[in-house]
Simulated scan of single mutants.
Amino acid sequence: MTAEFLRAFKRPRAHVAARRLYQRPAFAMLAVILASLCSSLAGAAPPPAQGDEVQIIVKGVAVPYSVFGIVKRLGQIPGVAKVDFDMRHGLADIKLLPGAHITDEELRAAVKNASYTPGDIHWVTPNGRTVTAPKAASPPQ
């Protein structure tokens, strides 16, 4: 056997070098950061930045009388201070109490409880930016 072959054979294999890399704490932190970034890009969105206002589109509102039921259901959610409804755009504008925490699921459930279909949810952050919440997964058919 040649000396070159023996030197190549004695070199650490790629998987051994990679295993040594995985054992370093800095790599572990980088892996956690990349995993969280990938999950947020893949649709597992982080909770929206809570502000003092949220807007939800309600589909299927045809008459002004039906607005009462939507406003009533949304107003029953703990932490809601005031609900206004724009009939022309089908948009419920919800003002929250300071420090209130409301989830997208609570908003969607309240609209469904009023017998309507919830649309997009837009969170208005304290600095005035609007953040659109991810759409709810539709049930398999």
Results as ranks from 00 to 15, higher is better:
S39F: 09
S40E: 14
L41D: 07
L41I: 11
A42T: 08
G43I: 12
A44N: 07
A44S: 10
A45Q: 06
A45L: 03
A45W: 02
A45R: 08
P46M: 12
P47L: 04
P47S: 01
P47W: 02
P47I: 00
P48H: 04
P48W: 03
A49F: 04
A49P: 01
Q50D: 01
Q50G: 02
G51Y: 00
G51C: 04
E53A: 14
E53L: 08
V54L: 11
V58H: 00
V58Y: 01
V58R: 00
V58A: 05
K59G: 07
K59F: 15
K59N: 15
K59W: 14
G60S: 11
G60E: 07
G60C: 08
G60D: 06
V61Y: 03
V61T: 03
V61H: 03
A62P: 00
A62Q: 14
A62W: 10
A62I: 07
A62Y: 12
V63I: 05
V63D: 11
P64W: 09
P64H: 13
P64I: 13
P64D: 13
Y65R: 15
S66G: 12
S66D: 11
V67Y: 03
V67N: 03
F68K: 09
I70D: 00
V71T: 15
V71M: 14
R73N: 08
R73K: 14
R73Y: 03
L74N: 04
G75I: 10
G75D: 14
I77M: 11
